[in-house]
Simulated scan of single mutants.
Amino acid sequence: MNVISIKRAFALCFALLCFVNVVSAQKFKVIAFYTAKEDQAHISFVHEANKWFPQMAKKYNFSYDSTNNWSNLNEAYLAKYKVVLFLDTRPEDPAQRKAFEAYMKGGGGWMGFHFAAFALDKSAVPNNWDWYHDEFLGSGQYGSNTWRPTSAILRVEDRKHPATKNLPETFKASPNEWYRWEKDLRLNPAIKILASIDSASFPLGTGPKLHEIWHTGYYPVVWTNQNYKMIYLNMGHNDIDYEHKTNKDLSHTLGNPVEDKLILDAIMWMGTGKKAVGK
């Protein structure tokens, strides 16, 4: 091999190495949908999330976009993204619902927070999307909640899942309004419960109504449907100063190191198949 051939070979190897590095450094894309029009507690979380996720995206090499235009929930738009987030609500338009279902059945990733799973007959958010609430989430409609928003001790039920394998056995979650659901998720073979309320949390809630304080029971708060690349987290309702009509934040969801790690490892699992590191 002459000198020119050797130089060409080195140049080719260098070009291939650069190409591999560029490909490996490519970011996966996350899109968050939100409404942020109802309940200051949910609006507060949306604003918090839309500040926090861009910071995490820079640190963990993914890109983060957000939109309150639900008409973007269509096949062409979703094709650009590896992971979809629902920060506070769900789509109501039949075409948007159909596009989201196709996206998930096609292997897309999804993370939903708190009110994104809410549905209740004869309410402003009716129980009228069977695939989403009964099959995909498996929870059915809303049952009840604790009040006021308080921290809870959560027990990690599955420490082998990529989203939870690096969490402690129990941890203290940020203050939240905790939900109870119509269906018992333990009876659904497709559902893997990742975290639930630990009995050390009881009594959970402060009232003033007695039924808003939980003393016993089993309450899943983080789970995945094993037929999809998804995770639902009941977190996402900040405590707000309603009593003095200031609407000021009294708590935040993000910034809790263990809870943050859960969210980030879940995002990395859906986007790359790997866990986040260093958080």
Rank of each mutant, 00 (worst) to 15 (best):
E92Q: 15
G278V: 05
F100K: 10
N176I: 03
E259W: 04
K183R: 11
P126F: 00
D93Y: 05
G236T: 06
H133D: 15
A49Y: 12
L154P: 03
W223R: 07
D121R: 13
A117R: 10
R180P: 02
A190G: 11
Y103N: 13
R186M: 03
Y77Q: 10
Q141Y: 12
E259M: 05
K51W: 12
A124D: 11
P189C: 04
S139C: 11
N21D: 07
N74L: 08
T246I: 07
P149R: 05
Y242Q: 00
N176R: 02
K37Y: 03
M270E: 11
L262G: 01
K58C: 09
Q96G: 01
D158Y: 05
A32E: 13
E177G: 02
I6E: 12
S123H: 05
K192G: 12
S44L: 01
A11S: 12
A95C: 03
M56T: 01
Y81F: 13
L262R: 04
D130N: 14
K105R: 15
F62E: 04
T272V: 10
G106I: 08
T150A: 05
G271C: 13
N68D: 13
A11E: 10
F62K: 07
T224P: 15
H211Y: 13
I31P: 13
K172A: 07
V84Q: 09
S196V: 02
G138S: 02
N68P: 06
L187C: 07
T206S: 08
Y218M: 02
R180I: 05
R186F: 07
M56L: 06
L78G: 03
K58R: 13
K105V: 14
E92C: 08
M270P: 11
K80D: 11
G143Q: 08
L210P: 00
Q26I: 02
N234F: 01
K59D: 04
P162W: 02
G255N: 06
A119Y: 09
K245W: 08
W52D: 08
I153T: 14
A276G: 03
A152L: 04
S199Q: 10
V46E: 09
Y77L: 06
P91A: 09
K274N: 14
G109H: 12
F33C: 07
E169L: 01
A200R: 12
L167P: 06
E259V: 06
R186P: 04
G273I: 10
N74A: 05
L254H: 01
E243C: 08
F171W: 02
N176D: 02
H47T: 15
W110G: 09
D265F: 00
M235P: 10
Y179L: 04
R8M: 12
I231C: 10
N225F: 13
Y77F: 08
T89S: 12
Y103F: 15
P203T: 08
V125M: 11
V3N: 11
L16D: 07
I240H: 00
A195G: 05
N166A: 01
S5I: 10
S174K: 00
N61P: 03
D198N: 15
P94G: 06
I193Q: 03
T67Q: 07
Y60W: 11
P257F: 12
